[in-house]
Nucleic acid binder design. Structure first.
Lengths: 196, 196
DNA sequence: GCTAAACTTTACATCATGTAAAGTTGACGT
DNA sequence: ACGTCAACTTTACATGATGTAAAGTTTAGC
């Protein structure tokens, strides 16, 4: 009686969750908020997702699909020099953060109480770290990695500098534009990682 | 009947809270946990502090007193060159993070739900940013600030790089030692902020 | 017109914070 | 001794969110 043609319920829930989490003004987004936004009862949400953490992780994956993460990463992998690759990586991930930020934040907030959410997010961050490692490896391969940094340390540093929290601080708390953020992150990372 | 001689109840609560928050294995620290650790009923805690956020902020101030924050900062202010001052500031704040980390984390976790906690923490962070600004100003005064950075941007960058979250990532998630953390933060910051 | 899937409604368990109020205890002054 | 005050305990309850449970309703498809 509510859906005339198609958008599968599950996707409607995820879309609703994502939209709410992106514009969340002050108040935390509850399961009932998501249900309402999706035009469903709260229970119907639990019919599709066992719990909040699962819903949020599904939302992240849903975003990955919609935003074609692979294509973004392919661009950075196509770089010819390590230096170029590093910049493209900073840009790719830096431009992805705003998209997942709402969901990411909700997930991070759950980490203290929900061990599953913690594990799921840690896993995801491990993926990001691999992206950092690949960029650093390309740099090292080209002999462009500063002499006083080993690859592991450089990777950790890059990963820490490109954290979602860091983005939040600069972009939201301190009011930087996305362009400024990207520009400065590239400069910061190059200043520290690049040889010469 | 419980306190033979002196330690004022209020301080016992704060000390208990601080200790619990520093070693918190997995589980969040509840008001009842703090009460138990202080040898009191949960209600007695509410007799001393109106709510959790207030207790945590009091704990931060309690730590400030015990650790003599002013003395630490004085050391960095005593620096002769801007460059030296920057390093001393990174060291002072970087060495303070582990002390407040437990309490800070609890406070940060409350931010999403409790606007008061959010304001209180924001205020505190503003203080840290002022510390960053002072270090950057000293650098600029000595003509040692890189030409392509204005003081505001440099301050924001320094502040973001020295975040509690960044420390957590490197120190706890990635297993860095405190020495490595301090050393690398100094290098990172110098690489980006210092002229030449 | 039957069935099954998708949903709604209602109700309840749990858990932590915070409020409320009445009872206990011990130190202290007079 | 007596009373009183402050610091505490005990018990009880409100709230707000997640999550579980179960019975009822609607709709599409056959």
């Amino acid at each position: 009686m509510m859906s005339s043609d198609r958008p599968p319920t599950r996707d409607r829930i995820l879309d609703a969750a994502i939209e709410l989490l992106q514009k969340r003004g002050e108040k935390p987004v509850r399961m009932s908020d998501i249900a309402k936004a999706a035009g469903l009862s709260r229970q119907a949400v639990y019919l599709n997702f066992p719990n909040r953490a699962d819903l949020l992780m599904a939302a992240v994956r849903h975003l990955d699909d919609k935003q074609d993460v692979e294509a973004r990463l392919a661009a950075s992998r196509a770089a010819t020099t390590g230096e170029e690759r590093l910049s493209l990586w900073v840009e790719a991930w830096g431009n992805y953060i705003p998209l997942i930020h709402g969901v990411a934040r909700a997930l991070m907030e759950m980490q203290s109480k929900d061990p599953d959410a913690r594990a799921a997010w840690a896993d995801r961050m491990a993926g990001v770290r691999r992206g950092c490692a690949a960029a650093v490896a390309a740099l090292a391969r080209d002999g462009q990695l500063t002499a006083d940094l080993d690859e592991g340390t450089a990777t950790d540093l890059l990963f820490a500098v490109l954290s979602v929290h860091g983005w939040e601080t600069l972009r939201l708390d301190l009011g930087w534009s996305q362009e400024k953020y990207l520009d400065q992150m590239k400069r910061l990372v190059r200043a520290r990682l690049l040889a010469g």
